[in-house]
Design a binder for these strands. Structure first.
Lengths: 362, 362
DNA sequence: TTGAAAGCGCTAACAG
DNA sequence: CTGTTAGCGCTTTCAA
């Protein structure tokens, strides 16, 4: 429970107060009537002056501002929100802020929100559908102005938002519903990555990907498969969970087979990290014994040894673009049709995908 | 791209609705009176039943729940907050969620908040005092239930919170005011790091740190200086800003001097990354030509080459502990005196700080 | 241009 | 145990 409300503690008329009152809730908040009283005007005028909306006599306005300042008046956003029937808060629902990709997205969202006068609630779902549902419920109950969501799966249920009239922008992962959507060219990225591997001379690339109901990584898998098929090569695919050591485990299993792959495509940066660790433990030298390319240009990618080749996504910009779309929707300025924004991915070649000469014909 | 199931928009009563209605605010929300009416009880009973607080006739309670379910009733948290004079939201004010240390802290805070029934507003200040002030103002106006703050500087002004009766827990960086505080043993960590460097045989360790008004990093600098002084060595200290390439620049300047350092202590992980980059560009081999140790055990630290030695801070736990303290304060269960929690740091030795034998007496 | 007053949706006295 | 009702603090008609 929250603090016991004070029938005892002070009223603004200045009666003595039990010690606890200050410890508990602090001084009573000054409200709009107090300012009105001090400025010798009505509450309506105070409201208008402080929201510098309607035309208010400059003299009165100044008097109001002075009084507000003097009293340390701080408008109660909760009351305002109730009256206005709307908040200035967004919910950003992602799977894990620890994933550098989402960290960057979050920064993009937060920066844009801030400039537009919104605050953002951070919600981590940990790939847990129940948690995602709970957060959507919270968002609805808090009457947030909008939601930016990276859905757990293709058919996450966002109908709560729809029925609450809360605008939604989906980011990164596709949702089985027509809605504003900002993503990166995952399929094309995976195609670039795989072709790059083959161009380097690697002959048995494998794709380590996430559970099959994760939209984005599935597209990456499909991009990979598209290329290997076209080259008449076998598709070597492993779906691994989001656990921290999935990568290490995948390596163990892959390289115990008779014909292990000679190169790897990792569909996200945390996975790439895991694969590197696994490879190192097996004493396989990356960029010599085995090729590796990942997704997402994490800060550490250039510094590992060998430096990690990646398909980079414009994560920060994806955040700002999602936010921009959301602002439009909130203002009712968006086009009737939901928009889809596919941002391009870039191949960044570094050491990890290189293949030494003279080792052809494995 | 996107799959659509474009059914005609309808309102809850099933009537076709003009396009704008859905675009605008959606169907009108069902409120407590609607549920009361449907369940044939008073609003008070609905409220009681749904908050399963007071004793309500099980039969009525069930009828209420059924009605609420059927109508898709979603309590309006804004109204509730106004009435209850309190929210279920915290503000987490940090300098940059991109810093892996703060990412982990944020996860800790968010997890604990979630379990305790709170949501958290994410606020990045970018080491900008004005931004920090603005966020404190927002927190006050939103009447958040509590704030967790990593202050920009020692004398950040948090009086707004005090005068609003909003509990505050400071995390990581010291604040010039008596208040609940969760931090790590930075000084001791720096001592461990520096002594380790010396024990390895390095003879001229330098400390690359942040601006002098950053409390935590100053303690690290002092820990470093304490050790070098005791060993009769010169203190080589560089204060660098929070920019992305501070590390690279620092290396340039340091290694142009006549007697450059032979080893480096970096006070945070982003800085360590920068230093590694700078060192690589200068063709200095880490763990051979120069020793390096950082702060914070980022996910990538074991994977870089050579693997990065670090002083690890229990970032996630610092987040959960800060949250735990905050919950206590909110519930009024905290001790009268503000608490300080200093969590211990750990030396993790990996390759970067090693010094090859036979190179003594540089 | 200003003020009086009606709520926003909910909870918690208070009475029954 | 249940219902009636008075606000929480603010914005915004509606009149003056």
């Amino acid at each position: 429970m929250t603090v016991g409300r004070g029938s005892e503690p002070t009223d603004r008329r200045g009666y003595a107060v039990p010690i606890d009152a200050t410890a508990g809730k602090g001084a009573p908040m000054v409200k709009i009537v107090d300012v009105a009283e001090a400025a010798q005007v009505s509450v309506a005028t105070v409201s208008r002056a402080l929201n510098n909306s309607a035309r208010v006599d400059p003299v009165l306005a100044e008097r109001v501002r002075a009084a507000a300042e003097r009293l340390g008046y701080r408008p109660n956003a909760v009351a305002r929100n109730l009256r206005r029937q709307g908040t200035q808060v967004w919910a950003l629902i992602i799977t894990d802020i620890n994933n550098p990709f989402y960290t960057a997205v979050a920064r993009g969202v937060e920066d844009f929100a801030q400039e537009s006068g919104f605050s953002v609630l951070l919600c981590n779902t940990d790939e847990d559908q129940a948690k995602e549902d709970r957060y959507l419920e919270v968002a609805a109950q808090e009457r947030v102005a909008g939601v930016i969501l990276a859905p757990r799966s293709d058919n996450s249920d966002t109908s709560i938002l729809e029925s609450s009239g809360i605008p939604l922008v989906v980011v990164d992962r596709h949702l089985n519903r027509k809605v504003d959507f900002v993503t990166a060219a995952s399929f094309e990225g995976a195609v670039m990555a795989t072709e790059h591997l083959l161009r380097q001379g690697w002959q048995r690339p494998a794709c380590i990907t996430r559970p099959a109901d994760t939209a984005t990584t599935e597209q990456r898998r499909m991009g990979y498969e598209d290329v290997v098929r076209r080259h008449g090569l076998p598709a070597i695919v492993r779906h691994v969970p989001f656990h921290a050591d999935s990568g290490v485990e995948a390596i163990s299993r892959l390289f115990e087979s008779d014909v292990p792959p000679d190169s790897l495509l990792a569909v996200d940066s945390m996975l790439a990290l895991g694969l590197m660790t696994g490879l190192q433990r097996r004493n396989l030298k990356i960029g010599r014994d085995v090729g590796l390319i990942g997704f997402d240009d994490a800060t550490w990618a250039p510094v590992v040894e060998p430096a990690l080749s990646v398909i980079a996504q414009p994560a920060y910009e994806m955040g700002t673009e999602a936010a921009r779309l959301l602002v439009k929707r909130i203002r009712g300025q968006g086009p009737a049709e939901p928009q889809t924004l596919v941002m391009s991915t870039t191949l960044i070649v570094r050491g990890s995908s290189r293949r030494p000469r003279g080792r052809r014909g494995g």
